[in-house]
Computed example of a mutant assay.
Amino acid sequence: MGRTRIAIVGTGGIAHAHADGLSGLAERAELVAAVDVDQGRLDEFAERWGIENRYTDLATALREAAPDLVHLCTPPGAHHQQAIACLSAGVPVLCEKPPTLSLAELDDILAAERAGGARFATVFQHRFGSAALRLRRLVEAGDLGRPLVAVCHTLWYRPDEYFAVPWRGNWEIEGGGPTMGHGIHQMDLLLSVLGEWAEVTAVADRKARPTATEDVSCALVRFENGAVATVVNSLLSPRETSYLRFDLEHATVEVEHLYGYQDQDWRVTPAPGREAEVRAAWDTGDEDVASGHRAQFDALLTAHEGGLPLPVSAADSRSTLELVAAIYASSFTGTPVRRGEITDGHPFHGRMSGGAVPWPAP
């Protein structure tokens, strides 16, 4: 079959990461269109990446460029309507995180999938590095024993001026603070390894930044398999790190990085007496593939070319987004929240703030 024809919608900073990732897969994919409401930004992006077809209107791009796949790189507040427009036109979507501003919006997208047949996937590129793939395989096979304890920390730093961009730190456009827009990558990787979560107890606060949203959250998460995890998301941490730790019966597996990892960023510590079997299981000789957009695009194109479900489906994304909603709900109501509790009619189903933010607007 021919190369997959891709349109990028939204030509800001993250769109360049998409174009760069696709440039390494040029034998399998081609950028046939770019879309942005800002003509100057659109032209600059298209010139940089050699894209001839340029549109300021998504509907026109879908009709005239006829892409096989759309990459949504717009601010989060635009994802819902744009994704449904693509799916309704029969065009699959790969959407930047967070996929939507609320569970209600993601449920609309799931309904559009069922109605039109086209599929929706979310960019959660940390799932696709070779070490994460290896860890999931070993956990699923039981080679490292049962998962017991985990740590998931996104400790980043963003100064006040970071929030000068109008859509940042805004519930209506960004959907939330570091829980929604920053730590979601690490939380998604956590869930991809440990499976479905069961209950969360959390706190969130606005400590220092001039935002409407939180700038820090902390949660205790119980999983269906019995494991427990601590989850911290911060924009107040001068020594920045993204850190995950999995304590299993036979080994501790850790990764520390900032915005992306390689195999060398992972560390495995066997339990006493388990050294030989753990080393043999971990040292599988897999190719060292870094996490990143290209790794996910490679998997996405393989699925698309084979007519298979797109990796990190809307259903996969919903589990992660539901955990985000539950952290906010537990924080703002002061009660634990169980998976499946936030459904249609629940205050936190329609918006992450739930109408219950305990601090005044800045």
Rank of each mutant, 00 (worst) to 15 (best):
Pro272Ala: 06
Pro272Thr: 09
Pro272Ser: 09
Pro272Tyr: 04
Pro272Asn: 09
Gly273Thr: 12
Gly273Pro: 04
Gly273His: 10
Arg274Ser: 12
Arg274Ile: 00
Arg274Met: 11
Arg274Trp: 07
Arg274Glu: 15
Glu275Thr: 14
Glu275Ile: 01
Glu275Met: 03
Glu275Val: 02
Glu275Leu: 01
Glu275Trp: 05
Glu275His: 06
Ala276Val: 04
Ala276Asp: 10
Ala276Thr: 15
Ala276Trp: 00
Glu277Pro: 01
Glu277Asn: 09
Glu277Arg: 04
Glu277Gly: 01
Glu277Met: 07
Val278Ser: 02
Val278Tyr: 00
Val278Gly: 02
Arg279Cys: 04
Arg279Ala: 10
Arg279Val: 01
Arg279Lys: 11
Ala280Gln: 13
Ala280Pro: 01
Ala280Val: 06
Ala281Lys: 06
Ala281Gly: 06
Ala281His: 06
Trp282Thr: 09
Trp282Asn: 09
Trp282Pro: 05
Asp283Met: 13
Asp283Cys: 09
Thr284Ala: 15
Gly285Lys: 03
Gly285Cys: 04
Gly285Trp: 01
Gly285Asn: 03
Gly285Asp: 07
Gly285Thr: 03
Asp286Ile: 03
Asp286Arg: 09
Asp286Glu: 15
Glu287Pro: 00
Glu287Gly: 07
Glu287Lys: 12
Glu287Tyr: 10
Glu287Met: 08
Asp288Glu: 14
Asp288Trp: 12
Asp288Leu: 01
Val289Trp: 06
Val289Asp: 05
Val289Ile: 08
Val289Ala: 01
Val289Met: 01
Val289Arg: 08
Val289Pro: 00
Val289Phe: 02
Val289Glu: 14
Ala290Val: 02
Ala290Cys: 08
Ala290Asp: 13
Ala290Ser: 15
Ser291Lys: 07
Ser291Phe: 02
Ser291Leu: 02
Ser291Gly: 15
Ser291Ile: 02
Ser291Asn: 11
Gly292Thr: 08
Gly292Arg: 12
Gly292Cys: 08
Gly292Ala: 11
Gly292His: 12
Gly292Glu: 06
His293Tyr: 12
His293Gly: 08
Arg294Met: 04
Arg294Glu: 09
Ala295Tyr: 08
Ala295Thr: 05
Ala295Met: 03
Gln296Asn: 13
Gln296Arg: 10
Gln296Lys: 09
Gln296Trp: 09
Phe297Cys: 03
Phe297Lys: 03
Phe297Ser: 01
Phe297Ala: 05
Phe297Ile: 02
Asp298Val: 03
Asp298Ser: 12
Ala299Gln: 14
Ala299Phe: 05
Leu300Cys: 04
Leu300Tyr: 02
Leu300Ser: 05
Leu300Val: 02
Leu300Ile: 00
Leu301Met: 13
Leu301Asn: 12
Leu301Lys: 09
Leu301Trp: 15
Thr302Ile: 04
Thr302Ala: 14
Thr302Gln: 15
Thr302Ser: 11
Thr302Trp: 10
Ala303Phe: 08
Ala303Gly: 12
Ala303Trp: 11
Ala303Pro: 03
Ala303Met: 07
His304Asn: 07
His304Tyr: 15
His304Cys: 01
His304Arg: 06
His304Thr: 02
